[in-house]
Amino acid sequence: MSLRRLAIWPTLPLNTYFRKPADQTPFPLNQEGCRIFSLARQAIWNASKSMGLQENDVILTPAYHHGSEVEALLQAGLKIKYYDINENLEPDPEELESLITEEVKAFYLIHYLGFPQNATFWKTWCEKHQLIFIEDAAQAFLAHFQGQPLGSFGQMGIFCLYKTYGIPDGGAVICTSPPSLPQVPAKLGWWKVFKRHFNWVAAHRGELGAIHLWVSPIIRWWKVKRYKPHAEFNLDDPNTPPTKLTLSLLPKLLSEETFEIRRKNYQYLLDQISEWVPMPFRKLTEGACPFAFPVQMDNPTAFLEKLRKKGVMGLLFWINPHPSLPVESFPQSKKFREKMLALPVHQELNQSELDQIIHAVKTSI
């Protein structure tokens, strides 16, 4: 059976090398104080140091997180005090106020899946409590709130560029006290570029997608055999710069159309399969730039396997929290981890591929 393989991560078209650089550069890349490292977690570590946060300072951090950002904060010598989110993925101001002590110096807010939190409210709230406002816009590059770019409201904004474009890496940070530029020699990044090119071809040629469908169980078995718990949180060298191919390809990929295409794709999927979308994401809010399309299932593992056989490579979103999190103490975050899945919505998808995703979901329930 010939199936196009559609993955969460944006693919890299083969003609990228022949494109002209974009005329305009979006926030924060157009800011003099913007720094780009290989990974966003490295940007967090460096910015935490440059912002003057001291060892053992406490950061209010969401229990619903990836884990790499938590590890970066811990490696920077900081302490974490977790807070839960409500059913709309929003923090509760009353809960947060009960957590504030003299040791608490910053508040960490995540804009989940590219959907903006009320950044204006949280900026004012942080000012009232004299806390550093850290905005995690890793999934929200190009998104905005009330006409202002996400990541620009706080004293620190974090962005993960390869979640939006098919480049090898790239974690950007903008903050009131910019860190030094990374000093380690940059790698080329050819292997990750090859994989993004492969994904682009597999999304357009069913023959490659069918091959991947056949070999993927073997790849998964091999990964399980070599699995190292919590390795996905590793900071590596925090002074690692982005690869050379990231810096050369990114200007050719930047486009004002990316924001609109992602929104258009999201709305098209939403119109067809909204009944399985978690409540916070059932409306495409103004300013959102979707990273992925979320669905919520009681049997996520079996559902994902059915999708895979139909060529749609979804994932269980943030299933593994940082080991420092007492999972049972944060029930709402636990619920999202166990049931929320992410499906492709990126700008390289065409109409036929979106229809493939819709068909796969409807026939896998």
Rank of each mutant, 00 (worst) to 15 (best):
L12F: 11
T16M: 06
F27R: 10
Q31D: 09
Q42L: 07
I44F: 14
W45E: 12
K49E: 12
N56Y: 08
E71G: 07
L74A: 03
Q75E: 14
I80L: 01
N88Y: 10
E90D: 12
E103P: 00
A106Q: 05
L109D: 01
A119M: 03
T120W: 00
E127T: 11
H144F: 09
P149H: 11
I158E: 11
Y162Q: 13
Y165C: 02
I167C: 04
I167E: 08
G171H: 09
A172R: 06
S180H: 11
S180T: 11
V184Y: 08
K187Y: 01
L188Q: 12
K192A: 13
K195G: 05
R205P: 00
A210H: 12
I211E: 04
H212K: 11
L213N: 12
W222V: 14
D236Y: 11
L247R: 15
S248N: 04
T258D: 10
R262I: 07
Q267M: 12
L269S: 02
Q272P: 00
V277F: 06
M279V: 12
M279A: 14
R282Q: 15
C289G: 01
P300A: 04
G311Q: 02
V327Y: 06
P331H: 02
A342P: 01
L354Q: 03
H359P: 00
T363R: 10
